[in-house]
Design a protein around this nucleic acid. Structure first.
Length: 489
RNA sequence: GGUCCCGUCGUCUAGUGGCCUAGGACGCCGGCCUCUCAAGCCGGUAACGCCGGUUCGAAUCCGGUCGGGACUGCCA
């Protein structure tokens, strides 16, 4: 193995939907790998069998694919190191744990969960550090082996060498050191024989020859443990880079309690993957001063872990929205149509969307430049699809009660009636002439028509909307609005 | 409580001793444009947590202090 080859990994644990924090970590790993022409690996950390599901695994892989973070080795694509799934490697972890016991670097612990809980509580109460007190570390290895052979349940704990010190150069934090006195003998193997995260993750990083571990800062305090395990295995630890955490608006680690923070949620709300990519890259990193929007290629070109910020970043939904709008407007029309369609179907039904599709296509470019999210499309374009218009009552109340509204509605129908070509230009000419004659401003005179045609005071440009709607439907709607007014509303 | 990490506009950040009377972006406010809304254009608001030191000179280096966060599980 080339010692200079960059090999990085992202290891989602499929116990929930992939959230933006993990996605951002994946993005940074991917950028680092691509920048250094290294290998990006996706592994599944599913040692928590009880909570892991294939749905969540699929969700994570889908999310990564959606963002365009294709991987070179790992689940789904294979590679020279097996299945890249921890549940397939339980024997390997046990083997490492047994080997560590044999070499005196770990020991069997017979304390029961209840005993440990009691000890922790007592320590807490007396103001002592709550870590494991090392009770079982003094049991002679022969005695311990006997008890295990007899079937007594035992976990395996790592024997932290004390006194001692573990220090390392974190690519984003710089020099970090931990005194072993503050690290207790942590569990490697649970009494049911399954490995903990510390063991499994570390063994995998060694076995898969990972060169750089870039992960959330929440794992910084665990790093000395991982380094100790690695060294006890006789391997050289990887480089570490601890990424600043993503916070919610309240300044705490982004989590469920900040609402739906799954990547899937953003995908379903109508954010574009390239916008998400761009926005997440800006969380703790900057491409260049004065540059906010940049391509995937530019990001790869410019990315360096050492330039990642140390400060936690608050996930700014407003900026994400703005970025999405930028990408939205830059989209080729056919892609816009493709992406928008499912959102219309969800709101209006497949048949309705099919029958109104051509009308929608007519004004789609005008809608495209007015929305930030695909989920906003139905409310802006719905009037093109429906048979009978549902008015936004606030708009109606505000704009349809004026004294000249009836006149505008009637006159508009009269003017439009004789139009030879049902095109925006002709419609505009006719209506402008009408405004002139009535002596009313465009602002005031056109708004009632907008409500009559689109049901809302906010819509795509009126003349184009009428043109796209079609002559018959336009007249129907003018008549409908007129009728409602006649009914005294 | 203990260990560790962090501290530039509300938010994301640029800044690595003089180019900083601190730059950009989002947001917000005002204006222009305008058939509404967007978009666009112009302008404005707003930050180096605090105290000491080093230095001719500090947002940048050092110390302290205060504040925030993460971790402290047979979760990951």
């Amino acid at each position: 193995m080339n010692p200079d080859l960059v090999r990085v990994r992202i290891a989602p644990s499929p116990t929930g939907l992939l959230h933006v924090g993990n996605a951002r970590a994946a993005l940074f790993n991917w950028l680092f790998a691509r920048h250094h022409r290294g290998v990006f690996i996706v592994r599944i950390d599913d040692t928590d069998l009880a909570r892991s599901t294939t749905e969540f695994e699929e969700d994570a892989l889908d999310g990564l694919r959606w963002l365009g973070l294709e991987w070179d080795e790992g689940v789904g694509v294979g590679g020279p190191y097996g299945t890249y799934r921890q549940s397939d490697r339980i024997d390997r972890y046990r083997q490492v744990a047994d080997d560590l016991i044999e070499r005196g670097r770990a020991y069997a612990c017979f304390c029961t969960p209840d005993e440990l809980a009691a000890k922790r509580e007592a320590a807490q109460r007396e103001g002592r550090p709550p870590g494991y007190d090392g009770t079982c570390s003094t049991i002679a290895s022969s005695a311990a082996a006997q008890r295990r052979d007899r079937g007594e349940p035992a976990s395996t704990r790592f024997a932290v060498p004390r006194p001692g010190l573990t220090q390392f150069d974190d690519l984003v934090r710089g020099a970090v050191r931990f005194d072993h006195e503050t690290i207790d003998d942590f569990v490697l193997l649970r009494s049911d024989g399954t490995p903990t995260y510390h063991l499994a993750s570390t063994v995998d990083d060694v076995d898969y020859e990972i060169s750089h571990v870039a992960r959330g800062e929440d794992l910084l305090p665990s790093t000395p443990r991982h380094i100790m395990i690695t060294e006890a295995m006789g391997a050289v630890p990887p480089n570490y880079a601890h990424l600043p955490l993503l916070f919610g608006p309240d300044g705490r680690k982004l989590s469920k309690r900040h609402g739906d923070v799954s990547l899937r949620h953003y995908r379903q709300t109508g954010y574009l993957p390239e916008a998400m990519f761009n926005a997440m890259a800006l969380l703790g990193w900057s491409y260049a001063p004065e540059v906010t929007i940049f391509s995937r290629e530019q990001a790869v070109e410019g990315f360096e872990l050492s330039q990642v910020s140390k400060n936690p970043a608050v996930f700014d939904i407003d900026k994400l929205g703005w970025i999405n709008g930028e990408y939205m407007r830059a989209l080729p029309l056919d892609r816009f149509l493709d992406e928008a369609r499912p959102f219309l179907v969800e709101q209006l039904g497949a048949e309705t969307v099919r029958s109104g599709w051509d009308r929608f296509v007519g004004v789609a470019p005008l809608i495209q430049e007015r929305v930030r999210l695909f989920s906003e499309v139905p409310s802006m374009a719905g009037f093109l699809f429906v048979e009978t218009l549902a008015y936004d009552e606030d708009s109606w109340a505000k704009l349809m009660r004026g004294d000249q509204v009836v006149q505008v509605l009637d006159e508009a129908r009269r003017r439009l009636d004789g139009l030879e070509h049902w095109e925006p230009e002709q419609i505009e000419a006719a209506l402008r002439a009408m405004l002139e004659e009535i002596g009313i401003g465009a602002r005031k005179g056109l708004q009632p028509l907008r409500v009559a045609i689109t049901g809302s005071s906010v819509s795509p440009p009126l003349f184009e909307s009428m043109a796209a709607l079609g002559r018959d439907a336009t007249f129907d709607r003018l008549a409908a609005a007129r009728a409602r007014l006649a009914a005294g509303d």
